[in-house]
């Protein structure tokens, strides 16, 4: 966690986090998928800068390597071959093969589901510049962030049971550098700057793609999560699912909102009220006192406690004979 004074949202925290230094621009990373050649320089740069060394895996016969995000692989390239509408002239109805490559990783949502779900105060923070960062020092390893994230991003480490994901190089950005992946990308497919500038660039790229014949190019900045600070330019923005399952309209699941929303304070209040109700019932009505034998049995011989004579008294109870004749 690099800057502790411009935190605009903090997990499991109900009062404002310190954010006096929050007069900063919102940043964004723009990934122009149409320009990606799948070289994985960004994956390597991420390992390099963040000192991460994932286990060397096996070849699964596809380009994806590793096959999924992990606590040591915060970004992975996902490759997908699909049939799409052909883009060349007079291609009405024709199909053509497209090799769609997407750099997967944290989207740095404006409304992060991970932060919403996290029960550990300060384990997840959102800075004023829009970066969502995990302060793993406070992480308890419950995995609620995985449950909350609409993009299936966070991963719990097998080594230390803490959750990890892309930090958008918050450490580099804090001192005015671009993220490591941006620096490494040889095609300028990944760019970094203010969110405003990146949206403007994205607009331009979308126009280019339109001119090249794509029917539905677009910017992926899903409003269901309030927009993201990692955006894509997609050639087929009408079907984000083509890009290895990018969700079409991601938002915090209603299930998560129901779990983490108003229900919690309401249930907590009801528990408190129940306990107080008991207390005040006792104070006003008093206990049900233990009934005496006289009250329950009246003159019933059997329970006239002094006269217990069942022939089996072994002497241990003799002391009571005198006192009990009341």
């Amino acid at each position: 966690m690099v800057n502790s004074q411009n935190i605009v949202a903090r997990s499991a925290t109900t009062l404002p986090a310190p954010h006096v230094r929050d007069d900063v621009v919102e940043v964004a990373k723009l990934i122009d998928v149409s320009r990606c050649i799948g070289c994985k320089a960004c994956q390597v740069a991420c390992m390099e800068w963040n000192d991460l060394r994932d286990d060397v895996g096996e070849c699964h016969g596809v380009y994806d390597n590793p096959m999924d995000l992990s606590a040591e692989s915060w970004t992975v390239m996902r490759f997908n071959e699909v049939d799409v509408d052909a883009v060349h002239d007079n291609a009405e109805g024709d199909k053509e093969l497209a090799w769609l490559i997407r750099k997967d990783g944290c989207m740095h949502c404006a409304e992060p589901g991970c932060l919403e779900a996290c029960p550990a105060p300060g384990a997840i923070v959102k800075y004023a510049n829009g970066i969502v960062d995990f302060d793993s020092n406070n992480c308890i390893g419950c995995g609620y962030c995985i449950t909350g994230c609409p993009f299936d991003i966070p991963r719990i480490s097998e080594k230390d049971s803490k959750s990890y994901k892309c930090t958008l190089c918050s450490d580099r950005v804090a001192v005015g550098l671009e993220p490591a992946c941006v620096k490494a990308c040889p095609t300028n497919c990944i760019e970094f700057g203010s969110k405003k500038d990146m949206l403007a660039r994205a607009e331009k790229r979308v126009n280019d793609l339109q001119q090249r014949g794509y029917a539905h190019p677009g910017v992926y900045d899903p409003q269901g999560v309030g927009g993201t600070h990692v955006m894509y330019v997609l050639s087929h923005a009408d079907q984000p699912g083509l890009y290895s399952g990018l969700p079409k309209d991601p938002r915090i699941s209603p299930m998560v909102s129901a779990w983490k929303g108003v229900t919690k304070p309401i249930m907590s209040a009801i528990l408190g009220i129940t306990a107080f109700a008991g207390f005040f019932h006792f104070i006003t009505k008093g206990p049900k006192e233990e009934p005496t034998d006289e009250e329950v049995f009246g003159d019933d011989e059997d329970h006239n406690s002094g006269d217990r004579d069942d022939g089996q008294d072994d002497g241990r109870h003799q002391h009571s004979h005198e006192e009990d004749r009341s």
Partner: peptide, 12 residues
């Protein structure tokens, strides 16, 4: 909570 209170309430 109800269970615990009931035990306190009903003496014996």
């Amino acid at each position: 909570i109800v269970h615990i209170y009931a035990a306190i309430w009903v003496k014996g």
